[in-house]
Design a protein around this nucleic acid. Structure first.
Lengths: 115, 115
DNA sequence: GAAGTATGTCGCAAATATACGTCATTGTAT
DNA sequence: ATACAATGACGTATATTTGCGACATACTTC
């Protein structure tokens, strides 16, 4: 052990990674885009639009719901899923802050003096 | 087989998911943050700051490099990793567009008439 | 050239993600 | 009540990710 491992990951890093993981599958990206544009957001309708089986889509819905990015409302026999717009805006801020911090003041770029 | 699977995932959805997957691990988030702030970006130094073994960090570096989010320059015995700021800005735009489209005009929110 | 250092690749084990069929539950309609 | 529809939970098979030690390579230094 030539190296000392001093710091663990910050809560901020874990939070960003958690949300990124939720978006790390095309189906979940598609689900959010669907919910943003469709008037109806019934579970079965969502599944019908995706090239995956209904149960698989249901799983993806549960993952998004577990992070509270979407909410599900039971309406009789069907379930209506909606975007948690408020949380999505917060997440957007987090990503924006992360990217801005990463690109704002590049001290080390290819060819620069740092290396 | 009650459902017809008409559409596959768009290239846009896959691209966003690909980048999101790169950010879906705290170590990779931490690496990007490190590269953004440190003057030096030598592989070994990066590994020393993370609570992971050197080989594991090397793997995460390769993953980021595969997406061209970071670049590696061999400088004699050491390797200097730098952010691809240009690409990061593009990615930031992609995420911003995605989130904005998702939150801009919420037709279906909990309690609304859509369900 | 011999010794030492920095790095990436390889192989492996464990954990996690993905996809889907089957089933149980719950509500609707006849 | 009986039959049917929509949904999520469960089990399972396969694929991918994660983490790491051992090794190979390449460069530096003596």
């Amino acid at each position: 052990m030539t190296y000392a491992k001093t710091t663990a990951f910050t809560e901020e890093q874990q939070q960003l990674a958690r949300v990124a993981k939720a978006l790390a599958h095309p189906a979940r990206v598609a689900i959010i885009q669907l919910l943003a544009t469709k008037q109806t957001c019934i579970s079965g309708d969502i599944a019908a639009e995706l090239p995956l089986s209904r149960t698989t889509v249901s799983q993806h819905l549960q993952e998004l719901k577990a992070l509270d990015l979407i909410r599900g409302e039971i309406d009789g026999l069907t379930v209506c899923y909606c975007l948690n717009v408020e949380l999505l805006r917060q997440v957007q801020q987090q990503f924006a802050a992360f990217f801005t911090a990463s690109t704002a003041n590049p001290v080390c770029t290819p060819g620069s003096a740092c290396c």
